[in-house]
Amino acid sequence: MRTRKIPMRKDIVTGEMAPKKDLVRIVKDKENNVTIDETGKKSGRGAYVSIDVKVAQKAKDEKKLNEVFSVDLSDKFYDDLIAYVDHKQARKELFENDK
């Protein structure tokens, strides 16, 4: 059986390459709306953040997504991102322990 290629993406906060499944995609559409892309398939310009609360908090502290997308995002968006990443991190830890 052939080994499958693992898609790698760069975390915009740490600058490290990681498997796509270990990152959260944030996307900016044509109307300049920035949203968390839960499916990873929305159209628009994407950026990736690690599924790590510390990294998401650092993105908020440095206003990294404002820089990347050239928009002014509210603190609420960053808080929602941190909550989403916290949820994904908890699920990942929970289900990795089942293996």
Rank of each mutant, 00 (worst) to 15 (best):
R9K: 14
K10M: 15
K10H: 10
K10C: 13
K10Q: 15
D11M: 03
D11F: 01
I12P: 06
I12E: 11
I12T: 12
I12D: 06
I12R: 06
V13E: 01
T14H: 14
T14S: 15
T14P: 12
T14L: 15
G15I: 10
E16G: 09
E16I: 11
M17P: 03
A18T: 01
A18L: 10
A18K: 12
P19E: 12
P19L: 08
P19Y: 12
K20N: 08
D22M: 04
D22V: 00
D22P: 01
L23W: 01
L23K: 01
L23Y: 01
V24A: 03
V24G: 00
R25I: 00
R25H: 05
R25W: 01
I26M: 05
I26F: 01
I26K: 00
I26G: 05
I26E: 03
V27I: 13
K28I: 13
K28T: 04
K28R: 14
D29F: 08
D29E: 07
D29N: 15
D29V: 08
K30Q: 13
E31K: 15
N32E: 13
N33I: 14
N33D: 09
V34N: 08
V34A: 12
V34E: 07
I36G: 10
I36S: 11
D37E: 05
D37Y: 02
D37N: 04
E38I: 10
E38S: 13
E38C: 07
E38K: 14
E38V: 10
T39Q: 05
T39P: 01
T39F: 02
T39M: 04
K41R: 09
K41D: 07
K42R: 10
K42G: 05
K42H: 02
K42V: 05
S43W: 05
S43R: 11
S43M: 12
S43C: 06
G44T: 05
G44H: 03
G44R: 02
G44L: 03
R45N: 11
G46Q: 05
G46C: 06
A47C: 09
Y48N: 05
Y48L: 02
V49G: 00
V49F: 00
V49K: 00
S50A: 15
S50M: 08
S50R: 04
I51E: 09
I51P: 04
D52Y: 02
D52M: 01
K54P: 02
V55G: 10
V55K: 04
V55Q: 07
A56P: 07
A56S: 11
A56L: 09
A56G: 08
A56T: 04
Q57V: 07
Q57R: 15
Q57K: 15
Q57C: 06
K58V: 10
K58W: 08
A59R: 04
A59Q: 09
A59V: 04
K60W: 03
K60F: 06
D61Y: 06
D61E: 15
D61K: 13
E62P: 02
E62N: 14
E62A: 13
E62R: 10
